[in-house]
Amino acid sequence: MSEYVFLYRGETDIKTLSPQEAQQSMQKWMAWFKELEKKGKLKSIGQPLERSGKVVGGKKRTVTDGPYAETKDIIGGYSLIEARNLDEAAELAAGCPGIERGGLVEVRPVMPLNM
């Protein structure tokens, strides 16, 4: 078993959902997480992230508002997944309900200490 981080990006149309659609979307997400857990694949459900914050960088450690990435690139949250290999992890990510709403899941293997 290896560990993978799922980064949830996009879901651009969330602001235009009706209350009923928002509730249905939430329930789909919860069902999906539950299923991952039942399969023993969910190491940690992770956290949602605010869409904006600060960006710090440069020689002078300049602090600016941001990130002002394209909406579709903004990370809305992350989870820690256990899977046999990258293919299986990607397969699990394919079931993510955010994809139905224009989102995408970035699947990144966690680098282990012992290669």
Binding site: I14, L17, M30, I45, P48, G76, G77
Partner: peptide, 17 residues
């Protein structure tokens, strides 16, 4: 109201209702 539902949707799906 729309904002409140967006927040609910995003946090509840991780933390539960």
């Amino acid at each position: 109201v729309q904002d409140a539902f967006c927040r609910a949707l995003e946090t509840w799906k991780f933390h539960g209702v």
